[in-house]
């Protein structure tokens, strides 16, 4: 019972914090650009307004277009509830398996790519094809990078990996984990559509990836897509934080431990989000044909991490 409450609390926390994370990252960027920037709660205001507006379904779109925002949101909520963010032992601990989590994230990506195709517009199809190219290169890296950690623990269960790291912090700082962290960080950037792979603030249709697929969404549907995308960024940054900085994650279902876990989780997210936003000021978007080179590099890092953890262990 208490484990189920933890899972719900985790999902609610991630859903509530995700728009604030976006607002915080925009604020950091605005400061570095010399602007005053919007408020932290601005993304929440945007969502509230969008939820009140009518959705529009384009004439050529079918069922997939209407279903995709729901699929994207459902997969995000499920991962947010299952993965080890506050506590290492959720009710879904058997489900919080690495392969399931990556599969759920991929399901959301594919749903949105199909919706982009479903609109029948040129930009939707272009965005979908780019997203699938990137996803095909990112998913193996996500898997490999975490495999490097799971060889140490002997399990692909994310909760078990985080718990082992929290119990023995010295084991986290190995050459293998450093390689895996680098690989996972690059994969996170690509999967969440951040610079240098995709520019979340672009208005130029020819350079869009994520944005091109959601051009036709309006009102409530758009709110779901934006909210779920923010949650995916939170999910990925949270995984990165908890796998490589595993302190503060509750190992017992005690309410105080969970509260500490929540506070530490938010601080970790803020630090990682701030670093990401600050880093984005210094880089430009890569040309699309250079992106596979970057992702292949991260795959190699992941492969080296697995080899290193198998040989050096």
């Amino acid at each position: 019972m208490i484990a189920w409450i933890t899972a719900v609390a985790q999902a609610v926390l991630v859903a509530a914090v995700a728009p604030l994370l976006i607002g915080f990252m925009r604020a950091v960027r605005a400061r570095l650009e010399g602007r005053a920037g919007g408020r932290l709660v601005q993304p929440w205001r945007d969502l509230r307004k969008l939820l009140r507006k009518e959705p529009i379904i384009p004439a050529d779109a079918g069922m997939i277009f209407t279903a995709a925002p729901l699929v994207l949101m459902a997969t995000s909520v499920l991962v947010a509830a299952a993965a080890p963010y506050l506590s290492t032992g959720g009710p879904l601990s058997g489900v919080a398996d690495l392969i399931v989590v990556v599969g759920l994230l991929l399901l959301g990506t594919v749903a949105l790519a199909l919706a982009g195709l479903d609109t029948g517009t040129a930009f939707g199809g272009m965005g979908a094809s780019r997203e699938m190219t990137i996803a095909a290169l990112v998913e193996p890296t996500l898997l490999l990078a975490v495999f490097a950690l799971s060889t140490r623990v002997g399990s692909t269960d994310l909760g078990a990996i985080v718990a082992a790291g929290a119990a023995d912090p010295a084991a986290v700082f190995t050459p293998a984990s450093a390689l895996a962290a680098a690989a996972l960080a690059i994969a996170t950037l690509a999967e969440a559509g951040r610079l240098p792979v995709d520019n979340p603030a672009t208005h130029l249709e020819l350079t869009m990836v994520h944005e091109a697929m959601v051009l036709e969404y309006a009102g409530r549907d758009l709110a779901l897509v934006e909210w779920a995308s923010a949650m995916r960024l939170t999910i990925l940054l949270g995984l990165l934080a908890n796998l490589f900085i595993p302190w503060g994650v509750a190992s017992s279902p005690h309410p105080a431990a969970l509260a500490v876990g929540a506070a530490v989780f938010v601080v970790k997210l803020a630090v990682l989000g701030g670093l990401l936003a600050a880093g984005e000021v210094f880089v430009a978007k890569l040309r699309l044909f250079r992106v596979p080179e970057l992702l292949a590099g991260s795959f190699v890092l992941g492969l080296l991490a697995v080899v290193a953890s198998a040989v050096l262990a």
Partner: peptide, 16 residues
Amino acid sequence: YDAERHGVRLVASPRH
């Protein structure tokens, strides 16, 4: 002038 601090943002699509 930074209109973004007043909650105003340019978007890429009339649907948004």
